[in-house]
């Protein structure tokens, strides 16, 4: 299985965390809150399209709200593949980090 890129991973995690409420504004805000990185909507939707194309997420249209000038929200959900990919990614992270303590590294090793 293809490994997720950092950005894809961030997006998928955010979508997963937001559960039923993952759409443009909330995803953008959540990512900003979690990582401090502010995406413009242009880049955001580009990446989201990519996730959908690769089958990690799917799009669902919501009801139009007056708050958005009568426009619909586009909700994102994780697909089975998306969840699998996240799991795989998590395992890689785990195996990378397990048994490794950052504070135990001696800075003096620097040459």
């Amino acid at each position: 299985m293809r490994e997720l890129s950092k950005a894809e991973e961030t997006f998928l995690i955010t979508i997963g965390r937001l559960r039923e409420n993952a759409y443009g504004v909330s995803i953008r805000d959540k990512i900003a809150e979690l990582t401090g990185k502010v995406y413009t909507y242009g880049t955001l939707y580009g990446l989201l399209d990519q996730l959908v194309n690769r089958g990690y997420a799917l799009k669902l249209e919501g009801a139009p709200t007056s708050e958005r000038g009568g426009r619909r929200k586009l909700y994102y959900r994780l697909t089975r593949e998306g969840i699998e990919a996240l799991k795989a990614s998590y395992q890689v992270q785990q195996s990378l980090w397990s048994g490794f303590d950052l504070s135990s590294i001696d800075e003096g090793l620097k040459i």
């Binding site: 759409y23 504004v25 000038g69 426009r71 619909r72």
Partner: peptide
Amino acid sequence: NPPRIAEKFISLFAHYQNRPYILGDLDED
């Protein structure tokens, strides 16, 4: 309402599939 001209400007460049959602998000913000 958000500025009309700015909205038009964005719709000019946004891909037609994502256009309403991007505009909606921006509107909400």
